[in-house]
């Protein structure tokens, strides 16, 4: 579904990733871990075309991501739902409108999607907060709203960048359960996290592979995880 083929990434100040290869098979669940600044977010961005590798090739849905034009990149992002570390909401819109944003920009009538939208908001437990503005929400609520927005178009792949970074353990567990549930629905999941406790907890619920970035290289984590 998404394939990293011997990629390297140089951000101008030096090599961040070298000879990284990985494959996200359909329906798989991957964690991406590593120390801060190791390149986890960069690797995720390479997967959905926000960045392009300086060497090697990223393929998504059998397309070379670097060869996509701007409209094709936008279409790719409708097939890859992303939960950003800082959520990336539009603060002048309500949570309901923010979650519906992918529907709005893809030209779908909200009236016909209202049932699905309400069901999704209910699934992430934000029915009571749907009309609130993003700054009025707690960290956990914002992450759940970001997850709802990421899956509203029913993408094939969900990528989450440190979704539990600013939330307590209970909320982390709640978010994890939502991601596991999505994986059971057949979605391919890639979660960047430095929270090893969360990763261990997840491995009890789902068959997840753990990839570790260290010293510019990507390796499969061992039995310690």
């Amino acid at each position: 579904m998404i394939e990293l083929d011997n990629i390297g990434y140089n951000y101008g100040g030096g090599e961040l990733l070298t000879n990284v290869s990985a494959q996200l098979a359909p329906g798989s669940f991957h964690f991406l871990t590593g120390p801060s600044g190791a390149g986890k977010t960069t690797l995720l961005k390479l997967c959905y075309g926000a960045l392009h590798p300086t060497s090697g090739r990223v393929r998504a849905f059998n397309m070379d991501v670097k060869g996509l034009d701007r409209d094709q990149t936008a279409m790719l992002r409708r097939r890859v739902g992303v939960v950003h570390q800082d959520c990336q909401f539009l603060n002048h819109l309500s949570i309901y409108e923010n979650i519906a944003l992918p529907l709005t920009v893809s030209g779908k009538a909200l009236d016909s999607e209202e049932g699905n939208l309400n069901e999704l908001i209910n699934w992430v437990g934000l029915s009571e907060r749907a009309e609130a503005k993003p700054p009025e929400l707690s960290g956990g609520e914002r992450q759940r709203a970001a997850l709802a927005r990421a899956v509203i178009l029913s993408p094939d792949v969900v990528i989450a960048d440190e979704p539990t970074g600013n939330v307590d353990w209970d909320m982390s567990q709640r978010l994890l359960r939502l991601l596991v549930e999505l994986n059971r629905m057949g979605k391919t999941i890639l979660v960047a996290s430095h929270d090893l406790a969360l990763i261990r907890a997840a491995k009890n619920q789902v068959q997840a592979r753990v990839l570790r970035i260290s010293d510019r290289r990507l390796t499969l984590a061992g039995a310690d995880l």
């Binding site: 701007r70 409708r78 909401f89 992918p102 030209g107």
Partner: peptide
């Protein structure tokens, strides 16, 4: 910032 968010959720330039 708004444009960046719109691009991230799959908005076309024309939109």
């Amino acid at each position: 910032q708004v444009i960046e968010v719109l691009r991230l959720v799959g908005a076309l330039d024309s939109y």
